[in-house]
């Protein structure tokens, strides 16, 4: 098991290196140079050239890539062209905000979604099942930004009880977290329901009933753990995706998170920020994948047995 974890962590190195390489070369194909970006259109060509020289902009590409990798290994992700501040520091300022949004919404969404999904499956075709399936489909069909604007109109403009922007007070979290959580819950309701329905039909559930196991134990012990595998996958991937992509919510509510940070960097061709963002997301995705895979092993001994091979 430990061997497997170490192997997987070591495997992350070539993956991250490969991603860095690809993104680095794509970015170097785009026009523009750091000197002009930093100094602006009004600066003289001499000043721009001088700055470009300092950045190593005229070095051959392999050398530039090599230097970049060495810098990263030292923990230096370069300086943002736009803010003139170290990229890593900027990212770390934004990260807690996004983390809070993602973790809170995921937690709430999971706490709502999984139990309703279980109930829906256990009481298939009941009023609750019909209602929650309809609700899940409805939420899944509503675009996030539209829901965001509608809620802002309702709660901020008309009722004036919630702020429309920012996260200065706890009230600011209600709408953005609520919208993300409800979307998460909707997708988890559908997933949990179908996964549970599949497990409940299995022969071993009938075996459990035949030996007199209480219905509650059948649902929560025998069925749920078997049904959790696809659910764990989706929650894990939602977390990874959330860290890079709460962009729409951040834009709608003017929140300074990782999503906005990267989006603005792409718009202004702030290459060091884009690079750092991509590497960061790649690392998060690989880590989440690893954690999800380890949870598989915990949930299903057959998968665990494969890991120790």
């Amino acid at each position: 098991m430990y061997k497997y974890v170490i192997k997987r962590i070591l495997l992350m190195i070539p993956i991250l290196l490969g991603i860095t390489l690809i993104v680095f070369f794509i970015m170097s194909l785009t026009p523009g140079d750091p000197g002009r970006m930093i100094l602006g259109q009004g600066a003289t060509q001499e000043a721009v050239d001088k700055l470009n020289d300092e950045f190593g902009f005229y070095d051959p590409l392999p050398l530039k890539f090599g230097n970049y990798i060495i810098d990263i290994l030292k923990g230096d992700f370069g300086v943002s062209y736009r803010t003139q501040r170290p990229v890593f520091d900027d990212l770390m300022v934004r990260l807690p905000t996004t983390l809070k949004l993602v973790i809170l919404s995921l937690l709430i969404g999971t706490i709502i979604g999984i139990p309703i999904g279980i109930l829906s499956a256990v009481k298939q075709y009941s009023a609750l099942d019909v209602f929650s399936t309809f609700f899940a489909l409805l939420i899944a069909s509503i675009p996030t930004f539209w829901l965001g604007f509608m809620l802002i109109i309702l709660f901020s403009l008309n009722l004036e009880i919630l702020p429309s922007t920012g996260l200065e007070s706890w009230k600011g979290y209600i709408m953005p977290v609520g919208i993300m959580a409800i979307g998460q819950a909707a997708s988890l309701i559908r997933l949990t329901r179908s996964s549970m329905l599949e497990v409940i039909r299995q022969d071993y559930i009938r075996t459990a009933r035949a030996k007199g196991v209480y219905e509650k134990i059948i649902v929560f012990k025998h069925s749920l753990r078997n049904a959790l595998i696809p659910i764990v996958t989706v929650v894990g991937m939602s977390f990874a995706r959330g860290l890079g992509g709460t962009l729409i919510i951040e834009k709608v509510f003017a929140i300074q998170g990782v999503g906005t940070f990267m989006f603005d960097a792409i718009g202004t061709k702030d290459i060091p920020v884009v690079m750092a963002g991509v590497i960061f997301l790649a690392a998060i995705f690989s880590l989440c994948n690893l954690i999800v895979d380890l949870l598989y092993g915990y949930l299903d001994p057959r998968i665990k047995a494969q890991y120790s091979k």
Binding site: D203, Y204, T207, A210, G212, H222, D300, P301
Partner: peptide, 21 residues
């Protein structure tokens, strides 16, 4: 309270009758 205690059942397919976890 009768199932599995007073009346037990052996099912057809041993491959799927046991909970894998």
């Amino acid at each position: 309270s009768i199932r599995g205690k007073e009346i037990s059942m052996i099912f057809q397919d041993p491959m799927t009758s046991l909970n894998p976890i």
